[in-house]
Nucleic acid binder design. Structure first.
Lengths: 381, 381
DNA sequence: GTGTTTAGTCCATAATCTGTACATAATCCT
DNA sequence: AGGATTATGTACAGATTATGGACTAAACAC
């Protein structure tokens, strides 16, 4: 609990700018009068605030609207996608990715570079990432966008600006700095994928996003915001214990979920998820059994997760998305059986609406969110 | 995300009252000048805010203080324990409890009534609770305190004002109303015990409190506030899966922690925790084995909890407190082994600093917290 | 005692929101 | 077609609250 600072006139206005912008963002274009109604501020105040937001280029007027009623038609004020944008970046096992998202959360640019980052040299990869970022920002600026911040998704644990541990990259305690000359943040891939699902996929406000990648991670969204735990390490679903004396896991534990449902286990000697899917489609019994075992393990781990985290629903993403038809049954059965007497219904189990780009999108979206939450601070109003 | 309302002059002042009161609460008595420094407000503003707080009776002046320096000595302003207080209530399996806590978080009154509430009639118990509350409030008022709110701890899941399910009481969907004629809240026993530990025990800001009672619950505190999950059901440690095909649990699952470490299992045919402790002290091998098995199971469940919740530390409370000497080893070993490669150190494992009254105290403390967080709203300033 | 230093208050000023009045622009009704 | 009605958005005076410098108060230093 940091000592909070007192509120002065300028912070009151800053807050009200955020309130108005937030109302526009949450419930779509509105006239000034409607915004006054929504926020409890007077029309006068809203007009003045909207004037500032217009000048900053974060909103635009979209011509007259009649609400089908009598009276002078109002002018709808909506988020402007034409000026402010943010950059999302991702380092993953086999690619680098970047995307630019505008204030309306429309994806304006996407770039991916295949790479083999397993056990790679951080300095080298970060240099590649810098180049990718620079190129992408250049392209965005050529399209008239002003990129005002960036975030990076990494497959590992993050503290502040340091990547603590990314086992599949083989990185440890890597400080990630100067990737871009903008406000910058790093976060875990599963966390940002969850936010990607929030803003670009399911658009629910409460769910646990399960990110099946080489490792298995999860990001919990409650009331539209991410739960991070004490050190930002929450949601490590992959090492939840499924069988206490099961096979050893690289984490030091035994019988972790990852041992049963990690991508390496799922694929076996196959070389891609697509290959596994086609085996499953052709009814290959060994593939089906692997999937069933993974689904069973997921059901056990998710039962523990439901008890501890109390998610609104469960969204399976990443490699679990193409495998969903084969996983759904075992997972749902496990949840239902184990949660029978604790809840009226277990949380709904659904498939992700986003693809493999959930994390990059979430990264860009996180900075958009920051603009909308504190426009005065970010844009210097 | 509810549409947030705009800020007006009165909310600015309300916020600043909270900021000043919060600063006094957080870092002890301060002069007006020091408060100005801490909050970033001017001395003038702080003086005016403090005047309001004095009038409301939530702070008092405590005579001159010299900071060992030259110059006019200031007057320390500190929380006043003499006027405002709150009521904590608890329904547990074998007793009803009440306590009154003043603004300085000093316990002013405690009352306990033994009862046998297993499979009891809610209406009857609630009537008893009403009487206990009324008596306790009367006594507090006789001592010059003004009780301005109450909270109730129950051994079950809560939604709004309704107790959804309290298996050990045998209650389901009981609306708890009109217990007192004051602002009122209900919450889960483990949640409130965690808050009790926060304010009356360990006083750490980040920990997972594990409440060993008939059931096993947990409350996660992050940055000094409680994580509740989506529906307020988070922290159900007792039903985290320890052995996926273990013995059936009353929740519908199998091999839940509660089966191995619930009070009923620990005691076996013994009739009290004290009896178990004396068996353990005399080296009874069967008691030791039970404890070791429970510790082992706790280690497994807590490993999952650490991965999912990322607690700052782990505090064992309730019946686990007297058993701590026998549990510590197996639990810590389990955590250390299973978390070896994931974190530099597993979260510290410590014993609770509060006794069986953690939950009632937490209940009273929660309302105190509300006064300090929003004094203007609560006290009508 | 006189000077220095720090605490707390007074008062004019500034920032921001409110509320009423008003100009504007559409539909409704005759 | 024209006036009545209704709703939007702006203007301006008024209210609320914080600021900042001047001032008073109370201690210590020499």
């Amino acid at each position: 609990m940091v000592a909070s600072r007192g509120v002065r006139h300028d912070s009151m206005r800053a807050r009200n700018l955020a309130v108005v912008l937030g109302a526009i963002h949450r419930s779509g274009p509105h006239t000034r009068a409607a915004l006054a109604e929504l926020t409890g501020l007077t029309k006068t105040t809203v007009s003045s605030l909207v004037a500032d937001l217009l000048e900053a280029g974060v909103v635009t007027e979209r011509g007259a609207v009649r609400d089908g009623e009598r009276g002078r038609p109002g002018v709808a004020v909506s988020l402007s996608g034409h000026r402010v944008a943010t950059l999302g970046l991702e380092i993953n096992i086999d690619y680098l990715a970047a995307c630019v998202v505008d204030l309306t959360r429309t994806v304006r640019l996407r770039r991916t570079r295949p790479a083999d980052n397993r056990n790679s040299d951080p300095a080298h990869i970060l240099q590649e990432l810098r180049e990718l970022a620079k190129e992408t920002i250049g392209e965005a600026e050529a399209a008239g966008l002003r990129v005002i911040g960036a975030a990076l998704a990494v497959p590992g644990t993050v503290e502040g600006e340091t990547l603590r541990s990314a086992p599949h990259l083989g990185w440890r305690d890597v400080r990630v700095t100067d990737v871009v000359d903008l406000p910058f943040a790093i976060d875990n891939e599963a966390n940002l994928a969850a936010l990607g699902e929030l803003w670009f996929g399911a658009r629910e406000t409460d769910f646990l996003y399960v990110s099946g990648e080489i490792g298995v991670g999860a990001g919990l969204v409650v009331a539209g915001s991410l739960f991070r735990g004490t050190f930002g390490l929450a949601g490590e679903l992959g090492h939840v214990v499924v069988v206490p004396d099961g096979p050893a896991c690289r984490c030091g534990g035994r019988g972790c979920l990852e041992v049963y449902a990690g991508q390496d286990t799922l694929l076996g000697e196959l070389d891609s998820v697509a290959a596994l899917v086609s085996r499953l489609e052709s009814g290959d019994p060994r593939a089906q059994e692997t999937c069933e075992r993974a689904g069973h393990a997921l059901g056990v781990a998710l039962t523990s997760a439901v008890h501890l985290l109390d998610p609104g629903m469960i969204v399976l993403g990443g490699v679990f998305k193409p495998l969903f038809p084969w996983l759904e049954g075992p997972v749902a059965d496990g949840l239902e059986a184990r949660l029978a007497h604790m809840r009226d219904d277990p949380p709904a189990l659904v498939v992700s609406q986003t693809g493999p780009d959930a994390a990059v999108l979430g990264a860009a979206g996180m900075i958009i969110q920051r603009i909308i939450a504190e426009p005065a601070e970010v844009l210097g109003l």
